[in-house]
Structure formats: C-alpha cells, structure tokens
C-alpha cells in the first residue's frame, strides 16, 4: 500500500536542496583542498599539488594558535556552563511561585542573535564609556582593555559565551533531571546514601546521555563561533578562534588563496564530523555495558 517511491518523492525536495547547498560545497572543498588555486595569480585555474596545502597547514602558526585558543575558550566556557547549568536546573526542579517568570528571563539570551550578543557586550566593555572597565578601574585598580590584553579578551569572550549559552545547558539538564525515575533515588536514600552518593551513583549515570549530548553540541558550537566574538573584539588579540581564522582565510572578499582556504575548511569539517559521529553514537545508545 505504501510505495517507497512516493516516500522518496516526498523526501526529494529536501534532499535536492541539501545536496546542492550542503553536500556540493563539501565535495568542492574536498577536491579543491588538494589543488593550488590562487585567484590573482597570472594564470587562473587549478593546479594539483597533492598534500602541499596540508603540509603548509600543519605548520601554520596562526592556524595552530587559533586551535589552541579555541580549546582554551571551549574548556573554560563549557566547564563553567555545565556546572552553572546543572546547579540552576537543580534549583528549577523545585516549585516556587514565579518560577516560570525566572525561567523565561533566564532563557532569553538563547534567542538573541549572536551578532547582537556581541554588540551588547561590546557596549559593556568599550573603553571610554563602558561600565565594566570603569568600575574595574575604580574598585580594583585594574586596567581593563580587551584591545590590548589578549587574556582579558579571551576571558571576556568566555564570560559572554557563558551569558549566552548557560540557559541552553540549564534547559537540557532540566529535561534530563525530570526524566530520572523516582524509585532508584528513594531506594538509595533508604539504603543510607548521603546526597553526594545519590548524586554520584544514581543521578549522574542517568544524566550521562544528556550530559554527553550537551557537551558535544557545545563543542561544535565553539568551533563554529564567529559572529559574537567578531562583533565583540573585531578579531583582536586573544580572540582569534578557529572559526574566525577560517572565515578570514576562506572569506571570498579577503582571501585569494582558495585552495588553501579549502584545505582549512576540510580540517574543520573533519573535526566536526568526528564529533557529530561521536554524538550520534552517544545518543543512539550503542555503548556497551550501558547501565549494568
């Protein structure tokens, strides 16, 4: 009765759009990544140069430092978000009047356009009239200038990211916490476990899939981050993350070396695909020995 051909026909518009705008660019970078293609060179066109782009890439200090910076950024931001998000979710499992109002306000940053998040934080930290540099100087005698000090710029990006994305962690954790069955927790309490033990041996194992999903999604977001950090610091020192580096190298307006740009894209896609696949494995419950 249900002819698969009809199914494929229903699916085809989606597949066609994704093949053209999602898959074709992938194939393109896959091919061009192995070529030398300098748009402004005397002879336009592709010249095969094997692994040379990648040879250049693995010694490209700018790229490597951007990766290092992204890792630092991701570790600081994601660790804080997980801890904070979990605490907030724990507090939201209780009922108190006005809870939904607090939750709505807490969720708001999630829907703000990243570029606007950047604008918001730029206005806060801008030297001259931003309140953050002013009060840090007044109260702590601290010179705060993200344009000059890379570490301050990095920490500002981290705090901005925490402001923006903690609500996401809170919401996923809340969903995870509310799906934990009551009985094992009660049983553990009857058996005389204290709160820490309940958390460690009961809550955490149940929460692990949610935790994994959240962490993977946030890592991939960190790799992609461009807009907000760019708006905040304009690519100043301390904020040249991988996303921004790729953008500068591959941006059609700024770069002429399209072959090299493609190889940079490829490496990032490689990382993303690996992470995606791990996420897929994690959520499809194919781990061995999951719960006992």
């Amino acid at each position: 009765m249900r002819n698969p051909r009809v199914g494929w026909a229903l699916l085809s518009p989606t597949l066609i759009i994704l093949l053209i705008f999602g898959f074709a660019p992938f194939v393109y970078v896959l091919v061009v990544g192995f070529f030398d293609w300098n748009v402004f060179a005397a002879e336009d066109g592709l010249r095969f140069n094997g692994l040379d782009n990648f040879r250049r890439l693995v010694f490209d200090e700018l790229f490597l430092s951007s990766v290092g910076l992204t890792i630092r950024f991701a570790v600081f931001a994601i660790a804080s978000e997980i801890v904070l998000g979990f605490a907030l979710a724990q507090m939201l499992t209780r009922n108190f009047p006005g809870k939904s109002l607090f939750r709505i306000i807490h969720t708001f940053p999630l829907m703000v356009a990243p570029i606007a998040v950047g604008a918001i934080w730029r206005l806060l930290v801008i030297p001259g009239f931003g309140p953050v540099p002013f009060f840090l100087d007044r109260w702590f005698d601290l010179t705060y200038q993200i344009g000059t000090y890379p570490d301050q710029a990095l920490m500002t990006s981290v705090i901005m990211d925490i402001w923006h994305w903690t609500p996401f962690v809170t919401l996923t954790m809340l969903a995870g916490l509310s799906s934990i069955p009551r009985e094992p927790v009660e049983q553990a309490k009857v058996d005389g476990a204290n709160r820490l033990q309940v958390f460690w041996y009961v809550t955490l194992p149940f929460l692990r899939p949610v935790l994994l999903t959240t962490v993977f999604i946030r890592i991939m977001d960190a790799i992609r981050t461009v807009d907000e950090v760019w708006m905040l610091a304009g690519g100043g020192p301390g904020t040249r993350f991988t996303g921004i580096y790729i953008w500068r190298v591959t941006s059609p307006a700024a770069s002429a070396d399209w072959g090299y740009g493609s190889s940079v894209s490829l490496i990032t896609l490689y990382l993303t695909i690996v992470l995606c696949w791990l996420l897929f494995i994690a959520i499809s419950g194919r781990r061995k020995g999951e719960v006992e």
Partner: peptide
C-alpha cells in the same frame, strides 16, 4: 552533520 558544519567552511564554494 549539515546542521553542525561550521558555516565558514562552506563560504568559498
């Protein structure tokens, strides 16, 4: 993968 790919990687193509 389509959703998670960094958009910057696809700008050039």
């Amino acid at each position: 993968t389509n959703r998670m790919a960094p958009p910057a990687a696809f700008l050039l193509p």
